[in-house]
């Protein structure tokens, strides 16, 4: 190699290259984060400021009582996620998570399709007492009670 670096400056050059690479990585990461992070929506937001069709997002809310239906193929489930202000129909092909229950919270990962249904790739339900999706934990404080009250007609 003919690239000659003045030996005196080698340490400085190394530091500069390392810094440049790390700052580059940081900038790239923050740019990618802004574009690739999937935003969390509640049903009310889905109506007031809907995401772009096809953009990966998470939808969180309560599974409306009586809305869960299995289609004829036996593996596609449809249900409605609501927060008391709005209702979003969800379409999910797959095995339902163990704690997916009507009237309980769910976070669906997926995207809005052109016809207004939300197509979920993955459902996160409450795992156990200790594991609640982060978004739902907040919800249970702010909204859950009224949501449950509304969707169950004041029961619970």
């Amino acid at each position: 190699m003919t690239m000659a670096i003045k030996p005196k400056h080698q340490r400085l050059v190394l530091i500069l290259i390392a810094l440049a690479a790390l700052i580059g990585a940081g900038l790239l990461a923050s740019w990618a984060l802004r574009n690739q992070a999937s935003y969390f929506f509640v049903p009310a937001q889905m109506v007031s400021e809907p995401p772009a069709v096809g953009q990966a997002i998470r939808l969180g809310g309560m599974v409306e009582k009586g809305s869960v239906k299995t289609l004829a193929d036996g593996v596609t489930t449809t249900f409605i996620v609501g927060d008391g202000k709005a209702r979003v129909p969800v379409h999910f092909a797959g095995i339902l998570p163990d704690l997916f229950v009507e009237g309980s919270g769910v976070v669906a990962e997926g995207r809005l399709s052109a016809d207004g249904t939300f197509v979920a790739d993955n459902l996160l339900a409450k795992h156990d007492e200790n594991y609640v999706p982060r978004e739902l934990k907040d919800m249970s404080e702010h909204q859950a009670r009224e949501v449950v009250a509304e969707t169950t007609g004041g029961g619970a």
Binding site: Q36, A37, F40
Partner: peptide
């Protein structure tokens, strides 16, 4: 950065999750 990003946005009341696409 990807792991901490949701914490940062949370401070601005925006909830995100970061996964494989990032």
């Amino acid at each position: 950065l990807g792991t901490l990003y949701p914490l940062v946005t949370e401070a601005f009341n925006v909830r995100v999750s970061v996964g494989p696409p990032y």
